[in-house]
Amino acid sequence: MLKSKYTFPILLIVLVMILLASIALGAVSISLADMRLAIIHWFNGVQPASIVESVFLQIRLPRVLLCAITGAILSVSGVLMQGLFRNPIVEPGLVGTSAGAALGASFVFVFASWFGPTIQSFVGPLLVPMFAFFGGLIATFIVYQLSKSHARVSLTSLLLVGVAINAVALSGTGFMTYLARDPQARSISFWNLGTFAGASWFQVELVFLVALVVLFLSLKDAKKLNAFILGEEEAGYLGIDTKQLKRKILIANTAMVAIATSFVGVIGFMGLIVPHVMRLLVGSDHRKLLPASMLGGAALLLLADMGARLLLAPAEIPIGIITSLVGAPVYIFLLKGNNLIENKGGAHD
C-alpha cells in the first residue's frame, strides 16, 4: 500500500486543474480571464457583459459542478455499499439502487399529469427525486435482504439477485418508455445512459446539500465502517450497533444516489473504479478512503464528461457509455481477484 502525506494535496490540485479545464473547454471556450470577470460581475450584481459570461454562469459552471458532485456521490456511495456488503465489487449500479431510482423517476416522467396541479405545485421539482429515492430504496433493500443468509452476504447470491432486480427495474423502465409519448420517451432513454446536458443551479444546490450531509454522517461513522470489515458479529463485539449502522448507511446512501440519478440519469461503474484505485492510494481506513474517493470521483467523472462533450463534438456522447466502457474491464479484473481471495479463504478451512 502506497501511502503518502502528499496524496491529499496532490488529489486536490489534480481536481482543481481538471475542474478549470472542464470549464474552459467546450463548444464555446472560456478563458480564465472570462471566468474571473464573470464572477466579479456576478458578485457585484451586474448583468453578464458577454455571451461567454452567460454561457459560463448559466450553462458551463452548473454543468461542471453537477458533474463533479455526482462523481463524488457515486464514488462515496461505492465505498459505503462495499463497506456494508463487505465486498469490493459492489456498487450502486450492481445492487439495484440506480435502476430502482431510474424506474421511480421514469414513472413520474410518464404519469406527471396524474398528480394534478395541486401536488405538482406543492412538491414541484422534488417529485422526480422523491420517487427516485423510493424506487432506489426498495430495490436496494430487496437485494440486500435476498442475498444475505445467516448474517453473511454471499457474493454469488448478491450478483444473481442484483441481476434479477436490475432486470425487473429495467423492464419497468422499458414499459414506461412504451407508455410514454414521444418527447417523454426520448428523455427517458437518453437519461438511461446518463447526461449532464440539462444541469441547472437548482440541481447543483440540492445535490450539493445532500452530498454534504451524507459525507458528514459517514465520516462520523468511519470507525464503525472500519470495524464492519471484520464482520458484522465482530463489529458488534467492539460495541457497535450494527443494525442501526446498516439502516443509516442504506437510507442515506440511497437518498444521495437516487437524487443524483434523478437529475443526471444512470451512470455506471463509478462506484467501482474510484474506491478500488483509492484503496491502493490511501488504504482501506474509511477516515481516509471516504474523502479521497470524494476527490477522485469528482475528478474522474469530470474527465469522462469532457470526453463525452469533446470526442465527437459538436455531438455529445451520453456519459454513461464512457464510464461503462472504462468500468466494465475494471469490474472483470476485480471479479477475478475476488475469486482468488475466496479460493484462498477456502484453503484455510
Partner: peptide, 9 residues
C-alpha cells in the same frame, strides 16, 4: 474465522 475483503494492515 475472519475473512477480510479489504486490505488493512
Amino acid at each position: 474465522h475472519y475473512e477480510i475483503a479489504f486490505p488493512l494492515t
